[in-house]
Nucleic acid binder design. Structure first.
Length: 156
DNA sequence: GCCAACGTTGGC
DNA sequence: GCCAACGTTGGC
């Protein structure tokens, strides 16, 4: 099992939207970055755990946990000229972009702010704390995942 | 809204 | 294949 962190802008899609989604499950579409795509297509597996992270908003940080329920498949929105993430250079014969489905697992009673994550002694590798790392899909080491998770859950 | 740090594009 | 220009991300 692997661990991930997915960024989302809560104005577009928040943890509460995931809670309210049918079966609390949502396709994670719209990823248009090759490195992130490679993770979605090749490495994210059913059963992997995913931190949901709110970015570009007032309170930036980890807000909840989800589980992967469907591994990489073609993101059909790339073929739809009406869609926000339409990619005219992609084709059905050679699709460029992939997505996975995730299901809500839990919402933490308090958001774990990025500012706190940056001060945690045992959190040194996650992309969030590294300069200039902007990937919206990033792997999380098991040890760091566990440290972050316990920090989130102990903050009742 | 600013701006630093990336990623992508396209001319050569 | 280089690299300048441009677009995007995302914290602050």
């Amino acid at each position: 099992m692997k661990y991930w962190l997915f960024k989302t802008e809560p104005d577009a899609f928040s943890i509460d939207d995931l809670v309210n989604a049918p079966e609390q499950t949502e396709p994670w579409d719209g990823i248009r970055n090759y490195q992130a795509r490679n993770f979605l297509r090749d490495e994210v597996d059913v059963g992997d755990l995913v931190f949901i992270y709110h970015s570009s908003c007032k309170q930036v940080g980890i807000v909840g946990l989800a589980e992967v329920v469907k591994s990489g498949y073609v993101d059909h929105t790339q073929f739809d000229p009406e869609a926000k993430y339409y990619d005219p250079k992609s084709s059905r014969e050679k699709p460029r972009w992939y997505m996975v489905d995730i299901q809500f697992s839990q919402k933490f009673s308090q958001l774990l702010p990025l500012s706190i994550i940056k001060t945690m002694d045992d959190i040194k590798e996650i992309g969030l704390v590294k300069k200039g790392h902007r990937l919206s899909i990033m792997p999380v080491q098991k040890t760091e995942f566990e440290a972050l998770l316990s920090r989130c859950e102990n903050k009742a």
